[in-house]
Design a protein around this nucleic acid. Sequence first.
DNA 1: AAGATTAGATTATGAAAATAATCTTAAGTC
DNA 2: GACTTAAGATTATTTTCATAATCTAATCTT
Lengths: 180, 180
Amino acid sequence: MRVSREVAEENRKKVVSAASHLFREHGYDGIGVANLMKAVGLTHGGFYKQFQDKAALVAEATEAALAENRKKWEDVIAASDDAPGEVIARSYLTPLHIENRSDGCCYAALAAEAPRQGGKVQEAFAEALEASVDLLAGPDGNRNEAMRQLSTMVGALILARAVGSEALAQDLLDAAKQKP
Amino acid sequence: MRVSREVAEENRKKVVSAASHLFREHGYDGIGVANLMKAVGLTHGGFYKQFQDKAALVAEATEAALAENRKKWEDVIAASDDAPGEVIARSYLTPLHIENRSDGCCYAALAAEAPRQGGKVQEAFAEALEASVDLLAGPDGNRNEAMRQLSTMVGALILARAVGSEALAQDLLDAAKQKP
DNA sequence: AAGATTAGATTATGAAAATAATCTTAAGTC
DNA sequence: GACTTAAGATTATTTTCATAATCTAATCTT
């Protein structure tokens, strides 16, 4: 049945949000339109009223995930007086983040699949990355250093998730935390 | 038709090798059994004579990719007198490697999907990672430092592939190359 | 309030997926 | 050389997927 314009818009946002989490957990290919819609309590029929096709949702959901990540970083940085790089490292390189793929870092979860997802997704990653680097560097920071730190954190998290062993994962996090 | 034991074994190896490359390029979910077999000139019928199921091939192909990567590192290190960390960084952080997913680093291509692929795959990653760290550190190297360098390189390559822009990708590679 | 519009549900459609069963033919074995 | 076995081909079977067409009931518009 039909639904008010506001509810429809809300539903659309719910779909994008659910997708941003489910893609991070299962990968872009790991979740289908039908399951996605079911996850927000709808059927797959309405999907194509809201989105051109799955690729369009992939792009939107990626942007949403990246925006969510960015907001979290801003909040974490604002909540402390320490240097941004240190604050982020502390909250990023944690066992909790290893386990929580679905609302964790989009870079660690999806960047490896981005090259296959078309230009819009890659543009979203590029834009978000510049913003992340700026956040990490802080007002008077070094762009190169921030880029290197970001790479280190993302790589460490991905590898920590890939090795089954908790001990080895912790070693990776610890190694990444060390100031060069 | 039937085929000699040696040819059968050869075919099996070809399937594993092709899978190790195709998975790196398309992701574990991005290539199916039928296409895989077609890629080595066989039909999908014989697949289950050689492998329990797709998951078994995923495990074997991952091991093969990791072993191939390791051998390449050993060769590159042996071919130079410079410190292993420098030699590897030079050959790893290149535009060529950005483009060449299918026979590039298995960490950058597949580690992000490893958490969903079961224990054997994760064990393979763990074992390979220890070996990579040893190689990077060299005989009298620092394990922590090697781990951090590995994370940095893997993260930088993944991010460089994710952003469409070549310029930004090059910045990421350059930043990762800098000695901390 | 009547009519037009549309969000979402139902129900196809068609392709691709994994896996299984059967068939064929040549390799191993005795 | 006859017999057994097994690799790979053919051909189902069953799921799952993306997408489309139609239906329905409620909202918007006038």
